[in-house]
């Protein structure tokens, strides 16, 4: 069989790799990671970022996505990486890309990639869940019951069917505060990234299992931070640091 190769010269090589932090806010939290990927590719073209492309009959811009937040959850700490064919000024890329994306997908930070894989710098996330029509005292009791357990098995539908996993061990910490409104409680959890990932909705399922907890409305969920987990300080380290 005749082997086909595309005519013409190979695409220009990548000379720089940039890491990008962005936020997904407001109503755009309902966009999925695939929705974002489409929007990003178009924004890159509009803004004129000289993207590096893969070779072959179906050239694709070189973008790698890392650990996107589930659809419906907001985030202040989403990441991706792009490869470009010229040396660019990261701050200029940030503002051009931010202009080309819809409001609510906001580019926060662009840096030149440090050595190593971006995914290795994303070990844990801090999530905030804002509950309405719940008092913080009630939520506190539920969370204490959860933290007192060694394991809490939850299950969720995956593409290949329902899977059970422990939602307790990956939770590195949890804190309850009262919101400004007395009928509002805020839960902040720090979760280590595992496979399968324990998501805020899994934590919520776990809470309902340990204490028959059923909030009248689903909480508004936001990922506040994502990065390396420092055992000694028990804090998340910004993946762009060091």
């Amino acid at each position: 069989m005749a082997k086909r190769t595309p005519e013409g010269p190979p695409p220009p090589p990548a000379v720089q790799k940039l890491r990008v932090r962005y936020a997904r806010r407001g109503r755009l939290r309902f966009s999925s990671t695939r929705d974002f990927a489409r929007a990003l590719e178009r924004a890159l073209r509009r803004s004129g970022v000289p993207m590096a492309y893969s070779a072959g009959f179906h050239p694709h811009p070189k973008i790698s996505y890392a650990n996107g937040a589930p659809t419906g959850m907001a985030s202040e700490a989403e990441f991706f990486e792009i490869s470009v064919t010229e040396q660019l000024d990261p701050e200029q890329v940030r503002s051009a890309l931010d202009d080309a994306l819809p409001d609510g997908i906001d580019i926060l930070d662009v840096v030149e990639a440090a050595p190593g894989a971006l995914a290795d710098r994303l070990e844990a996330s801090r999530w905030q869940m804002v509950f309405h029509d719940i008092e913080s005292g009630e939520l506190e009791q539920v969370v204490q019951a959860f933290l007192a357990a060694d394991t809490v098995e939850v299950s969720r539908m995956f593409k290949r069917g329902r899977k059970s996993f422990d939602a307790r061990q990956p939770v590195l910490g949890a804190r309850v505060e009262a919101g400004e409104d007395p009928r509002c409680a805020i839960l902040t959890v720090v979760v280590r990234h595992t496979t399968p990932a324990v998501r805020p909705d899994d934590v919520l399922t776990a809470l309902s299992l340990v204490a028959s907890f059923a909030p009248p409305r689903p909480p508004l969920v936001t990922r506040l931070a994502q990065g390396r987990w420092d055992e000694t300080t028990a804090e998340i380290i910004d993946p762009f640091d060091g």
Binding site: R45, R46, S47, G48, V49, P50, E86, Q87, L88, D89, Q92, V93, A96
Partner: peptide, 12 residues
Amino acid sequence: LGSGKQTMVREQ
């Protein structure tokens, strides 16, 4: 198309 890159390319 793509001319937006002029503002991004590093001077040196």
